[in-house]
Nucleic acid binder design. Sequence first.
DNA 1: ACCTGAACACCGTTCAAGT
DNA 2: ACCTGAACACCGTTCAAGT
Lengths: 232, 232
Amino acid sequence: MAAKRSGARGKRPQRTSETSEWLQPLHEPRSEPSLSRERIVAAAVELLDAQGVDGLTMRRLADRLGSGVMSLYWHVDNKEDVFDLALDSVLEYRGPPQIAQDWRGEVVHMLEDWRASMLRHPWSTLLLPRRALGPNILSRLELLSKTLSRAGVADADVNVAIWSLWNYVMGATITRASFDLSDDDRAAAQQRLTRLSERYPTIERSRLLLDNDWDGAFRKGLGFLLDGLSPR
Amino acid sequence: MAAKRSGARGKRPQRTSETSEWLQPLHEPRSEPSLSRERIVAAAVELLDAQGVDGLTMRRLADRLGSGVMSLYWHVDNKEDVFDLALDSVLEYRGPPQIAQDWRGEVVHMLEDWRASMLRHPWSTLLLPRRALGPNILSRLELLSKTLSRAGVADADVNVAIWSLWNYVMGATITRASFDLSDDDRAAAQQRLTRLSERYPTIERSRLLLDNDWDGAFRKGLGFLLDGLSPR
DNA sequence: ACCTGAACACCGTTCAAGT
DNA sequence: ACCTGAACACCGTTCAAGT
């Protein structure tokens, strides 16, 4: 997850992605929505949900919006930009469910929600390693940071704590999504490992690749990490 | 990391990637190496090192090997196959440095080597979420599994332990690689976050995105995790 | 058994132009 | 300010054919 090609958009419309949500054009509500950054991103997410990462094409995206391909480029820098926006748009956080939780419960909720948001859109786990940090991701990091500080984690340790949690959650989410095989693939994977069992006896015996309790494993490992990170 | 499109190769040469390393054609050492699976993979890794993921093209790969594009397809199923093979080829493990370490030292060595191997070829971190589990990855998992068992981790807990470690290491490696910005990008990222400091005061103040001690943070977080996973 | 070129059905993006 | 079509320089892969 990176700040590659950071915020400054190169081209015409100087409304950056950070401000566009606030400054709606209140004048002249055009009858037909026409093209807009928001519509493009929404259509991109739909397309990604339906067809996966390789299914997103500028031409297909334009088709879905009923516009010419090149019209998109007025609102968006290029395809990379579309990916950045689609990824971040899927990561909005609505906040913890109720007031007054212990900090640990809050953190667990935030991270489980993070994982769940991405698993709802499996393509997001493929995009993550290449994309910039959008406002929604930064907000989540900000909130996490605040929660840990308030919990009493020393300033010097907060960054290590955040990155440890981030690493764990992202690794778990990416792995989970890529193991979400169709039944066919699942069977093939098992068969393959059995065929190779002389070479990999231990993981074959433990059925490592067939272990299904992803949610439980996620929670357990997260628990270990939080034990280590907790202020003494 | 997935077993998507698992082992069984669809096409002609029935030497699968699992056996090809052992059965070398000892007869008739052809003068000019001609094309081979191994040469193709080696060239692919070179190309990926030089040009990144988007730089790998079947046409460019053929050029580099001095062959026609379609010749590659005799040895390789398709581009996906090339990616699978390139990723796994970079993940060979030579084993721990000396005999007689404690199990924890062994595990730390294995996981730091894993991370280092991938960071030597940053494109591998982009490939990881989409690719199948090759023999080298499976060997590493096998060894890790054996080490943990020998250390006394209960059978019922080994899988959770492995996946927790895997998740952490993969998340850390992917994140590390994608934050390995050029100096320009780094400056731009800092500037951007400062510009937005009203919105993200906590992570701006802690300089989360500029924290440079990746290796230290990795080791620290790994320590926490191992504390949690250690047999009581 | 291994290699090849032509051809097909796509891509993302530049550019010059329209309104 | 916003949208467009034609054109360019690419892609991966099928196929029918060569040796």
